[in-house]
Simulated assay, not measured.
Amino acid sequence: MTLSAKFELIGAALANEGRARMLCVLMDGRAFTNKELALAAGMAEPTATAHLRRLADAGLTVSMRSGRSIYHRLASAEAADLLERLGGLTPQPYLHRARRSPGNADLLGARSCYSHIAGRLGVLLLDALIVQGVIALDGDSVALARPAFFEELGLRPLKGWDAARLCLDWTERRPHLSGSLGADLMAHALERDWLRRGAPRVLTVTDAGHAAFTRHFGIAPQEIDHVPSP
């Protein structure tokens, strides 16, 4: 398949409002059933099945059976990264409207971007790690400069931390941390009850989380809650 044909295949899969809504739900990082995705997209289950087949053919999603249900998830972290970057290309007028939309309010402060933390909190965490000298950036490359910081947090050693990457945040238009380090940081925050999952992609910062993010990263609660206008 030529490169142009691949672009056409993925572009055609994305060029549908219902499929786009399902992909936004799947950016949560978890797997969802046909029924759940059909409800999110506002369509009947048989219609959702056909759309999900289209997304799978484009290499954006995969499915698995568990009991009597079929679950769907994004095909890979690379697929999630592609979708987040596409969101970052949104023209400014549309981004302004998206930020003002009541339906997006809960996503701006803290949300999951597949397996890592995005939104205002994700960008603040990356900034804090850079300022504290925990990680160093060389262009788009991320180097772990002070691994003892994560050991002090109680994170388990994770092979591949040096594979940390940057992901452009679509609402902040600045990068947040992704890759294996970003994934482990979000898992740790969920395990410690610093963050709790809510609706798809929504992450709620708990009181314990506010205290932890202030103590370890110097991020005040009002910084997370306040999302400045573009």
Rank of each mutant, 00 (worst) to 15 (best):
L3T: 09
S4Y: 14
A5N: 14
E8I: 05
L9G: 02
G11Y: 03
L14F: 07
A15S: 08
C24K: 06
R30T: 12
R30P: 01
T33L: 05
E36Q: 15
E36M: 15
A40V: 14
M43I: 13
A44W: 07
E45W: 04
T47A: 10
R53T: 01
G59W: 11
G59E: 04
G59A: 08
S63N: 09
M64G: 06
M64I: 07
S66V: 13
G67N: 11
I70C: 04
L74W: 01
L74R: 00
A80H: 02
L83A: 00
L86N: 00
G87N: 02
G87R: 02
H96F: 05
H96A: 14
R97A: 15
A98S: 11
R99Y: 04
R100E: 11
S101C: 12
S101Y: 05
S101M: 11
N104P: 08
A105C: 09
D106R: 15
D106H: 13
D106G: 10
A110M: 05
R111Q: 14
C113G: 15
H116N: 10
I117C: 09
I117V: 15
I117W: 05
I117N: 04
L121K: 00
L125P: 03
L126M: 06
L129H: 03
L129V: 09
I130V: 15
V131W: 06
V131Y: 07
G133F: 12
G133S: 06
G133D: 11
I135T: 08
L137G: 08
D138R: 05
D140N: 12
D140Q: 12
S141Q: 15
V142I: 13
L144H: 10
L144S: 10
A145G: 05
A145L: 07
F150M: 14
E151F: 12
L155S: 07
P157H: 08
L158V: 11
W161G: 08
D162C: 09
D162N: 14
A163R: 14
A163D: 13
C167L: 12
R173A: 11
P175S: 09
H176Y: 03
H176R: 11
L177Q: 06
S178W: 08
G179D: 00
A183F: 04
E191Q: 15
W194H: 02
L195M: 11
A199I: 12
R201D: 00
L203W: 04
T204P: 01
T204E: 13
T204G: 07
T206D: 07
G209T: 12
A211P: 08
H216Y: 14
H216P: 03
H216Q: 10
G218C: 10
A220G: 08
H226C: 09
H226D: 10
S229A: 13
P230W: 01
